[in-house]
């Protein structure tokens, strides 16, 4: 389904986020991506739908190499990839319904999206998805009126609205409490199972990853250092991923890198 070959990314600042990553993900497979802050998890999933441009390598989704596409072709292919974000990334001032419908933006012409005149079929599907994530009665509320868990459900509905072939999930539970986190993870796994949808989930919470994912990939300093079922994740493997000294203390500076590529690039612009 998804084949990543020799993928590398070096930022303009000279930081190497990924070096020579090769991965293959099959249909319906749930893959958890674990690793310390700054290991390149966020960069890896953003290189797949090219929110971050990879420096070199191939990303095959089905029989298309995403890394080679031009602007409009890329937009076309992005519709096949649903993305769910850390801290939800909903458009806060739009209604829940508009946020869900924004998953169709790649399919409808500009005037339809501008006038909010989506096709009846899309609207029916949006209601259906809102019902599936349990938010049917919140459709007309503004996104910023919802709680964290509810917002992430809207994020899931938006991604599914794209009728994707692949889900990219970036730290879905980073800003949620433990109970809500488990609910969201359960919803996510159920939905993937219902639709046979493969997903790559960035997750820093190892126990959560172990209990919900069927396969774990450990990333350290931009390279894959572990790949296997959760049951294989031994103490040694964890040390391999996170490093011995990282168990108790975090190195300063790691946080900055985990913020993601947008900020790195912006920082570069400010300094220039």
């Amino acid at each position: 389904m998804l084949k990543i070959k020799n993928l590398s990314k070096t930022y303009k600042t000279g930081d190497t986020a990924l070096s020579d990553v090769t991965l293959e993900i099959n249909k319906g497979q749930l893959v958890g991506l674990i690793g310390p802050s700054g290991a390149g998890k966020s960069t890896l999933i953003r290189c797949i739908n090219r929110l971050v441009e990879p420096t070199s390598g191939e990303v095959w989704l089905g029989d298309v190499d995403l890394a080679q596409l031009g602007r409009s072709e890329l937009r076309h292919q992005r519709r096949r990839i649903g993305m769910i974000f850390q801290e939800y990334a909903l458009v806060e001032r739009l209604t829940v319904m508009e946020n869900v419908l924004s998953g169709r933006l790649g399919y409808v012409p500009f005037w339809r999206s501008w006038l909010r005149r989506f096709e009846a079929e899309d609207i029916r599907r949006a209601y259906e998805l809102l019902d599936r994530v349990g938010l049917l009665q919140h459709a007309d509320k503004r996104a910023d009126a919802l709680s964290g868990g509810q917002r992430q459900r809207v994020g899931i509905a938006r991604a599914l609205m794209q009728t994707p072939d692949l889900l990219l999930v970036d730290e879905p539970t980073a800003s949620l409490d433990p109970k809500t986190s488990r609910q969201i993870m359960r919803l996510l796994t159920e939905i993937c199972a219902e639709r046979g949808l493969p997903a790559i989930v960035n997750i820093h919470d190892v126990p959560l990853a172990q209990s919900f994912m069927e396969r774990l990939v450990g990333l350290r300093a931009g390279t894959v250092v572990f790949d296997g079922p959760p049951t294989d994740l031994s103490e040694d493997a964890l040390t391999e991923i996170y490093g011995a000294e990282d168990w108790n203390t975090m190195r300063p500076g790691d946080d900055d890198e985990s913020e993601g590529p947008l900020d790195v690039e912006r920082a570069a612009e400010v300094m220039a």
């Binding site: 209604t95 319904m97 508009e98 419908l101 909010r116 989506f118 009846a120 079929e121 609207i123 029916r124 599907r125 949006a126 209601y127 259906e128 019902d131 459709a139 007309d140």
Partner: peptide
């Protein structure tokens, strides 16, 4: 199956 409404208007 698809008993959901097919129209939606943005509330003022």
């Amino acid at each position: 199956m698809s008993s959901y409404p097919g129209t939606w208007r943005r509330p003022p």
